[in-house]
């Protein structure tokens, strides 16, 4: 049986350059992940800041033996967003495509497709494979049965599941961090840097519900898919994606590795995750075709 790999997804949050350097240095040295996605995928206004971090981060991660993939922005709007996509698609390294604009410029060279890109069936997957797709991390709402169907129809494609982290649910033209602070997007003062895991959004009766991160809306809960290597293998899944949070991501990766290596079982992984200072409760409803916020075993 082929080994189920681990990947660290791109960070969605407005982390400072210093934070990024420290975060990825530890990942490079200590995290048992094969692949690391980097880059700004949410807001082009953050790029002038975090762009400075990437060359050193890439060098450090590669030195640590990680395969580095540069992710493109999910919702390009401005000229700057579009130029960033153009430049990334020219790179020799592997690129993760998160929007059709990136596909248009990357087609012909190998690329990964991220969860912001709508691939819901084998027909769409096939159309992308013809153009160079090597990995697909499908939209988070897609049930595992559908993912397995795509995997079966596309045996050479690596299927990657969004296994850990707050779920990326929506993007918008509007910035909710700015709106919550009574600012406009164009003069946002980068207030999204206050919330390292996103800004909690609760219901009127204070039920935890969503999280805002600039133009992005995430789940409040933290997705945790805890199937065993055998179970993933049976569904045609080749890699799990762990989405970065302001917690000990090295430990998260170690715990997932332990599960995949059969050293611990699912309930032990869940117990270890729950013991961490997670930004929300665990959820896994989507893979069973249920509402995303539920724990499918409930």
């Amino acid at each position: 049986m082929q080994k189920i790999e681990l990947a660290l997804g791109p960070s969605f949050f407005n982390w400072s350059v210093d934070y990024l350097h420290d975060f990825y240095a530890r990942i490079a040295d200590e995290a048992p992940v094969e692949r690391v996605y980097i880059g700004e995928v949410i807001c082009g206004k953050r790029m002038p800041f975090n762009d400075k971090a990437w060359p050193q981060v890439i060098e450090r991660l590669e030195r640590g033996g990680k395969q580095v993939v540069f992710s493109t922005i999910a919702l390009p709007v401005t000229k700057r967003d579009r130029v960033s996509i153009h430049d990334l698609c020219e790179l020799d390294m592997l690129v993760e495509v998160n929007d059709m604009a990136a596909l248009a410029q990357r087609a012909g060279k190998p690329f990964a497709v991220g969860p912001f890109f709508n691939v819901y069936n084998e027909g769409a997957a096939q159309a992308l494979i013809e153009r160079g797709m090597e990995t697909l991390c499908p939209p988070v709402e897609l049930p595992l049965a559908s993912v397995a169907t795509i995997a079966k129809a596309c045996p050479d494609l690596t299927m990657e599941m969004f296994a850990f982290g707050r779920l990326p649910l929506a993007v918008s033209g509007r910035c909710y961090h700015a709106r919550a602070h009574k600012l406009h997007k164009d003069s946002c003062q980068f207030v999204c840097d206050k919330d390292l895991d996103g800004m909690d959004v609760d219901t009127l009766d204070n039920q935890q519900f969503l999280a805002a991160n600039g133009i992005q809306t995430l789940s409040h809960s933290v997705q945790a898919l805890t199937l065993s290597a055998e179970e993933w293998h049976a569904q045609g899944i080749g890699r799990l994606r762990l989405s970065p949070h302001d917690i000990d991501m090295v430990q998260v990766a170690r715990d997932y590795r332990a599960l995949l290596d059969g050293e611990i079982d699912s309930s032990e992984l869940e117990a270890r995750l729950k013991a961490m200072p997670l930004p929300g409760a665990l959820a896994n409803g989507y893979i069973a075709g249920k509402p995303g916020h539920v724990w499918a075993a409930d």
Partner: peptide, 21 residues
């Protein structure tokens, strides 16, 4: 639609049913 159409899973997060699904 406030969210970018076709890129929104808020409804399925709460109910299991969404525009795309």
């Amino acid at each position: 639609c406030v969210m970018t159409e076709g890129r929104c899973a808020l409804s399925s997060y709460a109910t299991g049913k969404s525009p795309n699904l």
